[in-house]
Design a protein around this nucleic acid. Sequence first.
DNA 1: ATGTCC
Length: 476
Amino acid sequence: MQKKRLKRKSETEWWIEPTGPMRVPGVIYGTEDLIEGMDDKVHEQVCNVAALPGIQKASYAMPDAHWGYGFPIGGVAAFDPNEGGVISAGGVGFDISCGVRTLHSGLVRDDIERVKETLADALYANIPAGVGSRGAISLNHDEMDAMLEGGAQWAVGRGWGRSEDLKSIEEEGCMEGADAKCVSPQAKKRQKDEMGTLGSGNHYLELQEVTDVYDAEAAGAFGLREGDIVISIHCGSRGLGHQIGTEFLKSMAMAAPKHGIKLPDRELACAPIKSELGQQYLGAMRSAMNCAMANRQIITHLVRETFERVLPKAELDLLYDVSHNTCKMEQHVIDGKTKTVFVHRKGATRSFGPGLPDIPEAFRSIGQPVLIGGTMGTASYVLCGTDRTMGLSFGSAVHGAGRQMSRRQATKKWKGRAVIDELANRGILIRSPSQRGVAEEAPGAYKDVSRVVEAAHQAGLARKVARVEPIVCVKG
DNA sequence: ATGTCC
């Protein structure tokens, strides 16, 4: 991205002054090198979002932003329903409520070194991964609706997990306002046999070792120490979320003229929050959020079953579960007034600072855990929300490394087998049904997650707490 | 991301 098109406000804050149809400025967070490396399309998309009705304060892009469908991935935008504010299917993304959850294990490296091959094989055998992967669970019509409206609370009620898990999930595992009647039969059909499955692409399940602690107080509150082994699960709402996204993009684009909305780009399809279509999307999107939280909850149960057989002394308490493709109704202070707005976070993690009631009591005085997934061969990070986050980005931060190379480019450059062998030489075990999938996800196809995290930390979007490195990775 | 093109 050309820096001359931006006005630099600080080391890590870059503004686009409103021109033409833009109702608010654009704000891009990032260090100089990340800004220079960003696609010009991010600039264009930030401006497009700034032109949507009812947008508040600014159209934001996080340091890991890249070109997405309509909205940039790494985009954050809030809309006021009382000012004609809209909700956009492309502003949430196709993989609705894709997110990361991290479990403690109560183990250290020495506990798993001897059995890591066995663990890798057992996790791969018990947690279905890959395109179209099917789980052991099949939902009938009534159970599907109960899942869509109950989320992780539904899963725990059916025996997949522990009731104490729920306090460590955003929304305590159940998104209010989900309405299964807003979800099409086709979306439900696609999801019927996909509960408890990882899916493909950048989704994974990893055993990780805490290699660095940057903030002793926050790490203490989160229960993380150097040398600890943790388990992270990265996945979303599978076929259901994708189907909902596809259907509503189409209907929102078709209904835009009727709603008096002129779209600068068809991909920005949206509907007024107060319209019938907007409300239907909210009911469906929240159902997909519940689906994703239930999915990660069931996978958690499968992980516990696997450890029970291979390494029964593991404790597997849930640290936290965050989503990074959402739209949520939240209270924010805008121009000195508290307003209820709908915050789109597409490839952006909620990053609430200390004191907010939605944060589990155990870390309410610290800020919420912000779980940032890296790539297979590199590292992931745990951060926490700060006092400044609300004012900077409606309480949002980065979500991961972000691609720097297309899937196609990646498969030309790498072979899956070679990537697996190279990582094995470094002590990282990969298990995947797809060689091509591994090539597409080669570490080199992504930006350096450490630079992205450093930029988020510098910008005040979140504070670095700990770094983890992968040991075993089950890939989709 | 995705029954990787209804």
